[in-house]
Design a protein around this nucleic acid. Structure first.
Lengths: 119, 119
DNA sequence: CCCTTATTCAACTGATTTGTTGAATACGAA
DNA sequence: TTCGTATTCAACAAATCAGTTGAATAAGGG
């Protein structure tokens, strides 16, 4: 994995490490919304929400279009998919390792401490 | 989702937002390792790695056991699974929404601007 | 007990983050 | 143009983070 991909993961995971930004992602999964619409249900200012959106945008998790003076924000599901791919890769390696270990113990149990005490 | 669950997601996503910590997760997917083993291939001090492990532990992504004076670190796949569950939930809501929208456009295309210019 | 190894804690620094307020910019309506 | 709405930029303060070095703790081996 090159530095660019690493940096992209940095920004994407960091972007999700905030409840306000995860709330924005959750809202956008139901469809596009403007900055003001996203700020309305929260207790923070519109400016703060605008900066949260900037973080999400630089992480590649959302994009913005232009509609008169509004800038609707859209979810970009591709980046979310990259994150689950990263996580699942190592989750499955780990799972496979334990499956192999389990099979090994099952096939030749006579030398393992666990089976000695268990007999 | 309660505050505890939110805070847990905060810490877990933040823990993954660092290339050193992701490297540790990748290494641990192949099996447990000690702090020194984890620090050896990196260019940072053992103390810094120890603190990274603490972050991962507080995020619930790894756990530590005791083996004489060593403290082997183990991957905890359950928390990784929670993260993919969170991401996939909204990724699939979004995907479903676009499937529905697409079906709607296909069923009644006569009033939509796109199909008017497209004909 | 003394020595070595493994690990963690404490204090400090520089960089980054998150929120605020106030000012600036972009666009459309009247 | 003038006004109003939507959004962003700039500057600031408080908090957090990631690294360092140096000291402390824990556990075995001689």
């Amino acid at each position: 994995m090159d530095d660019d991909a690493e940096h992209r993961l940095d920004r994407a995971f960091l972007a999700l490490a905030d409840p306000v930004r995860r709330g924005i992602i959750a809202r956008l999964s139901r469809g596009p919304a403007t900055v003001n619409e996203l700020a309305e249900p929260t207790s923070i200012t519109v400016q703060a929400v605008s900066r949260h959106i900037k973080v999400l945008e630089e992480a590649g998790l959302v994009s913005r279009t232009r509609d008169a003076q509004r800038r609707p924000v859209h979810l970009e599901p591709g980046r979310l998919e990259e994150l689950t791919a990263w996580i699942d890769r190592f989750r499955l390696i780990h799972e496979q390792r334990y499956r192999n270990l389990d099979a090994l113990l099952r096939a030749a149990p006579e030398r393992t401490p666990e089976t000695e005490t268990g007999s």
